[in-house]
Deep mutational scan, measured.
Amino acid sequence: TYYTVKSGDTANKIAAQYGVSVANLRSWNGISGDLIFVGQKLIVKKG
């Protein structure tokens, strides 16, 4: 599943929404920190 980042989103918020850990969200998308951008497409695997 892909999720498009919206204004006000955070890695924590997206992870919680899908029931996954922030560490997994980072791993699936090659993100090292919490910096995400509006319009960015993230791979999300439901927990």
Rank of each mutant, 00 (worst) to 15 (best):
T1M: 13
T1W: 14
T1F: 14
Y2I: 11
Y2E: 07
Y2V: 10
Y3W: 03
T4G: 02
T4P: 02
V5C: 07
V5T: 04
V5K: 00
V5S: 03
K6F: 03
K6N: 06
S7D: 14
S7K: 14
S7Y: 14
G8W: 04
G8K: 04
G8C: 04
G8M: 05
D9N: 02
A11Y: 15
A11P: 15
A11L: 15
A11W: 15
N12Q: 15
N12C: 14
N12V: 15
K13D: 11
K13N: 10
K13G: 13
I14R: 00
I14W: 03
A15D: 00
A16G: 08
A16V: 09
A16F: 09
A16R: 10
Q17K: 13
Q17W: 12
Q17G: 06
Y18T: 06
Y18F: 15
G19H: 09
G19C: 08
V20E: 06
S21A: 07
S21T: 13
V22C: 07
V22W: 07
V22P: 08
V22K: 05
A23G: 09
A23R: 08
N24S: 11
N24A: 12
N24R: 08
N24E: 15
N24Y: 07
L25M: 04
L25Q: 00
L25D: 01
R26I: 15
R26K: 14
S27H: 13
S27L: 15
S27K: 14
S27T: 13
W28L: 05
W28Q: 03
W28M: 06
G30W: 07
G30T: 08
I31H: 04
I31N: 04
I31S: 04
S32A: 12
S32V: 15
S32R: 11
S32M: 12
S32Y: 11
S32Q: 14
G33T: 09
D34P: 07
D34H: 08
L35K: 13
L35P: 08
L35C: 12
L35D: 15
L35F: 13
L35R: 12
I36D: 02
I36L: 14
I36R: 00
I36Q: 02
I36C: 06
F37Q: 10
F37M: 09
V38Y: 04
V38Q: 07
V38T: 08
V38K: 06
V38I: 11
V38E: 10
V38F: 05
V38C: 08
G39I: 05
Q40R: 06
K41P: 05
K41Q: 12
L42Q: 00
I43N: 05
I43W: 10
I43T: 07
I43P: 01
V44E: 01
V44D: 01
V44T: 05
K45G: 12
K45A: 13
K45V: 11
K46D: 11
K46M: 15
K46V: 13
G47P: 15
